[in-house]
Design a binder for these strands. Structure first.
Lengths: 217, 217
DNA sequence: TATTCAGCGATTGTATACAATCGACAAGAG
DNA sequence: CTCTTGTCGATTGTATACAATCGCTGAATA
């Protein structure tokens, strides 16, 4: 009873994770054409599971598909990043509102704990802060417990790319945001939590718009 | 110059549309296991493009994939529909806000025209009103012109299923909503348009929650 | 009779072969 | 010299063959 069905890992899944890693780590150049035969051979699988993986990556907005041409590593412009942020803004806002409805004290403690290492006056390790930030958003989405929203986790992959493009605010700027959001969640104030989360992400959007105003595509 | 690239239709795309039609028209029973060999043969294609189609349908939340078992026509419970509506609420709200930013008089006229046939006192053709409703939401998303949002058109397919489950408000209840949203768009008042759109869809969410309160899963 | 488990047919998972077509380069026309 | 067009290698699109395994059925056991 209560046995969790073991999730069979087919090659499509494994390949998906492998290629995603390659893209996120920039081992594959943005804009690069992904040659199926070559890539399949390098991964030690046939084209069939690779194609399945590429389909999933297309859904994740990490690759682009052009019929009769193939799959290409998505290369984001600032304009496209803004679109992603606009969508993230409302989705993460929703996640926060839902999370507020049934967050537990244990979970709020976890969220606070994520940022505890950065409270002092010591200089902040950027990489460590980035993971904490990711975990923060991921966890709130998880608490929200909306399976549809979870499938749109999509955005989280792109978030990594956004960081690489320098599209993120400094820890100093965001620590207060995070604390305020956690407070609202703790008080089960969904409306405020949603609003704060939206403003938090909107700050990122504004940063992108600044780049755009300066002339970058 | 200005020639639009012809979009090659591979069998995967065609198969995708065919199967989507079968699901939406309930020619395939919800919950049914889709036998790949049989389905491929009936469509006159091999399993390869069918698999591609099924992957796309999974992204659209119309089928569910279980490794080593296969693809199943998604069967929505009221609880799941609520999740979909919660997401639609914020996404369509965003679409409305974006649309307000650069809607043209021609486009507002088109939107108003959609509902013109239903303005009189004559009884309303439910099917015709449903299409108008769909077109209304689709057009606003199109005006919004956010490609990421467009890819999440996902929700629009599920909307058809929602109608079939009886999850829609009467024309009498929604005509005023639509008019108010169009007014806000016309005045380029994105904040109001977003708020109105969210409330509009939230009314649907409340209806689902009523079903849930009455005990349906 | 209820339960387990082996065997088998049905179905998915993966590899591979072949067809379609794209893009690059070179030859020829203007 | 530039532009068009034909040819060919490379790459994607599709079909199909075969391997893995799922779950059902029925016999064996308690």
């Amino acid at each position: 009873m209560g046995l969790k069905r073991i999730d069979h890992k087919d090659l499509g899944q494994l390949t998906y994770h492998q290629v995603k890693e390659l893209i996120v780590r920039k081992a594959l150049r943005p804009g690069a054409h992904i040659r199926q035969d070559e890539m399949a051979q390098q991964l030690g699988v046939s084209r069939t599971p690779l194609l399945k993986a590429l389909n999933l990556l297309e859904r994740d907005l990490l690759v682009e598909f052009i019929p009769r041409r193939g799959y290409f590593v998505k290369q984001y412009t600032y304009a496209e990043m803004r679109e992603v942020f606009q969508v993230r803004e409302v989705l993460e806002g929703l996640a926060a509102r839902l999370a507020a409805a049934h967050i537990t004290p244990h979970e709020t403690a976890y969220l606070r704990g994520l940022f505890a290492p950065f409270q002092g006056t010591a200089p902040i390790d950027a990489a460590a802060y980035e993971s904490a930030d990711q975990a923060f958003h991921r966890q709130i989405a998880a608490i929200g417990a909306n399976t549809v929203l979870a499938k749109l986790e999509v955005m989280r992959n792109v978030q990594v790319l956004a960081y690489q493009m320098g599209l993120h605010l400094s820890p100093e700027q965001t620590l207060a945001d995070h604390a305020a959001i956690i407070d609202a969640l703790e008080q089960r104030d969904g409306v405020t939590a949603e609003q704060l989360m939206r403003e938090h992400i909107h700050a990122g959007t504004r940063m992108i718009e600044q780049h755009l105003a300066e002339g970058q595509p």
